[in-house]
Design a protein around this nucleic acid. Sequence first.
DNA 1: TATGAATGAGCGTTCATTCAT
DNA 2: AATGAATGAACGCTCATTCAT
Lengths: 194, 194, 194, 194
Amino acid sequence: MTSKKKEKYQLIVEAALKVIAEHGYHNAQVSRIAKEAGVADGTIYLYFKNKEDILISVFREKLGELIGRFHSSISESPTAEEAIRRMCRIHYSELENNVPLAYVTQIELRQSNLELRHAIGDVVKTYIHLIEQVLRRGVEEGSFRPDLDVKLTRLLLFGAMDEAVTSWLISGRKYSLSDQVEGTVEFFLRGLKA
Amino acid sequence: MTSKKKEKYQLIVEAALKVIAEHGYHNAQVSRIAKEAGVADGTIYLYFKNKEDILISVFREKLGELIGRFHSSISESPTAEEAIRRMCRIHYSELENNVPLAYVTQIELRQSNLELRHAIGDVVKTYIHLIEQVLRRGVEEGSFRPDLDVKLTRLLLFGAMDEAVTSWLISGRKYSLSDQVEGTVEFFLRGLKA
Amino acid sequence: MTSKKKEKYQLIVEAALKVIAEHGYHNAQVSRIAKEAGVADGTIYLYFKNKEDILISVFREKLGELIGRFHSSISESPTAEEAIRRMCRIHYSELENNVPLAYVTQIELRQSNLELRHAIGDVVKTYIHLIEQVLRRGVEEGSFRPDLDVKLTRLLLFGAMDEAVTSWLISGRKYSLSDQVEGTVEFFLRGLKA
Amino acid sequence: MTSKKKEKYQLIVEAALKVIAEHGYHNAQVSRIAKEAGVADGTIYLYFKNKEDILISVFREKLGELIGRFHSSISESPTAEEAIRRMCRIHYSELENNVPLAYVTQIELRQSNLELRHAIGDVVKTYIHLIEQVLRRGVEEGSFRPDLDVKLTRLLLFGAMDEAVTSWLISGRKYSLSDQVEGTVEFFLRGLKA
DNA sequence: TATGAATGAGCGTTCATTCAT
DNA sequence: AATGAATGAACGCTCATTCAT
């Protein structure tokens, strides 16, 4: 039963992602998500508190996976410098290879109300903490500037990458996002290095 | 008469800014804006095509002023390096000194629909072009790296500052944003310098 | 379930007829119709596309019944002359015996917009085609003039009866409409007979 | 001054006719009529009580002229039969030669509310009385049936002609309305003659 | 007389959520 | 657990009319 419950929960999350990606946030009615998931409207409310809860779950589930990948990749990196490089590579390539997810997280879900944005903030915070860890490691290793303001810099890195992805999407994905990894990392490392 | 017309237009724009800042984008009903401006609902439509037109105007008017200040300040800078410094200082201090504006531009208006977001995008684009100009100037001056990818870097700079401001707001403005200018500029210039 | 759905559909159509008859076309708000039908406003839209769709349905449903009665009565008539007589009798008596329907079809629904009027026109067209058939039959039977312009005459008959009904309504129904059948038919037949 | 007043009054009536003919009843806003007439919105209310008053005036003024023409033509007719013929000829030809007027009176103004329809009814009543006079004359002359129900028949004649005109308009005026005079009169006279 | 900026009442429709089955 | 018919609150916009100038 628990696994079945999980299954339907996942079914609805996937359906929500697909519907938002296809029709946009403002056309992602609960009934549409239910239809896409192959369940009745009312069934949604057996698994989610309300509509917002679905959207938060989409973000948490999908970005959770992404952040998991960061974690393992980063912890395996021999140096902080390499960790920064891998982080950016994963950030760009994962979103480039999953356009619907990119579209939903970068564009659509940002049109949501404050409560959802706070929830999204929590997920993003996890990622930002991860960046911070890498920065601290770099300082400790001696490869990054000892006077680095890690609290500030973690935001600058995240904001920079985030904007790079959003611009790539809005431009219509006319160029390769992965090709921007080198330029981005070069800029970051010069700013970070001791 | 023209000045009176201008007055009422401005009155409504200011009212909209205030209402969105106080009640949030999704609670900024036209009737509420009208009430705040001290005019009848119908009067709004003598000055604006529709609700969206009000919001776009808020953005354009308010950010227009801001970008104007960037322009003059940057063109007067003796060096590209100094231009970057001034740009970041204005970006942070202007928003820090106008919290409602910061709140509306960073948080509330991003919840809007696609058409408004496109309009906002146009204003932001102006700013990003300005950043690009500074970068080119720095390369020409020889103070910035000759191999700098200006198309990419302008986004990284904008995204980094944008995120710094948003985080400061969401944190509840518990610290000084202006105090972050030095750290930000230090990071940028190391990444840019030849 | 199907019958229940039918029931609610009919409930709303009847409510609309009653509301329009009582309050007039311009005061027949959707919320009023919903209230009269004993359903929520939103329920209306489970059965009708929009307000206009309700009104068209009122016309179609109600006049559809009427025209059905014409059909059977006319086809059973032994002669075209008798068909004309029955047609007029049904036309007058049915509307005389259903004043709300008469009021709505003759007065209120004619105040509607073009799209609805077109829809109404389609229903009326059916009736006019029926008249035409009777006229052709009379010509074939030899009882009506062989040189009769059926395309024109069908309009004259319909217009004449329509005006007789409307005048009777506007006069406040101070006289019997059924009593006018003889005079009307007499006039028609003299105009038609060979 | 009186003539000037009359002038502006006429100006507005003509403008209203034109606007309704061009844009339809539901798009004939007061401000549009004012613009067409070359006066300010407020000026309208110096000459008319309200919007309805304008529309009633359009009908009264324009149909008044028409009925005046009926009057003279009919009174000059040597026989009642000829009067019927002339009446129908004028009815059809005047409207055929003034399509905007036909369109406004037959289609657009009928979408109006009850009060206006009552006012229109008054104008039409004048016409119907005229028809009645002709019928009485025919009976007195002995050319029309002595048992003719004039109260009823006047409606039948008016309704028949009215429908003929409306159908011609709705059909897109693909045929000549004047060509229908003979068929119409033939039908009428057979119905009327002793 | 004439203006036209300002008014504000009025309404069709959507959709997240509920609940009887 | 699952259904889906029913709910009803919420809101942008139009336009006839007014009135200060």
